[in-house]
Amino acid sequence: MSNFRDTGHLFRFAGIFVAAILIFLAIRGWLVPHTFGQYGHYRGAALNEIAAKPVHFAGHQSCETCHADIAEKKSSGKHASVHCEACHGPLAAHADDPSIQPAKIDTAVLCAQCHETSAAKPKGFPEVETASHSNGVSCETCHQPHSPALEAGGAQ
């Protein structure tokens, strides 16, 4: 009995730990979504929620059904493997309703994203220092973005 009395404070201390663990488990049960862990280490219901989101990209095949001339021009040039929406942005809304016009592209900014000089780029990749090369003038003033190679009629 005396032993129990002299260890009473330890039980109180341990009691706080047990209470904290129980409170943690209760909060965990309340906060963690029920579908968490259904398929993996994520919320299972997120799959359907993501699938239900509207599609923003139309895909290059959709573009090519109407813009066959551009597709043909592009197919023979250096940008053949660059898909339409990589530069023009997501255009599902435009594909559904052609009256919705895509935003105008500022080529002075867009082209530099790939073609600005950087030591990390592979050998042979066309690079320029835009500040000295064009000084803010739009690239399309001289270059044809859909087929930038010389033989396609574009400037170098």
């Binding site: 005396s2 032993n3 002299d6 260890t7 404070h9 330890l10 109180r12 201390f13 706080i16």
Partner: peptide, 19 residues
């Protein structure tokens, strides 16, 4: 901080020391 226990008998302190 006492958690409501003011038992500082030699036996209780000895147990504290061991724990």
């Amino acid at each position: 901080m006492t958690l409501g226990s003011s038992n500082i008998s030699p036996r209780a302190l000895e147990i504290d020391d061991r724990v």
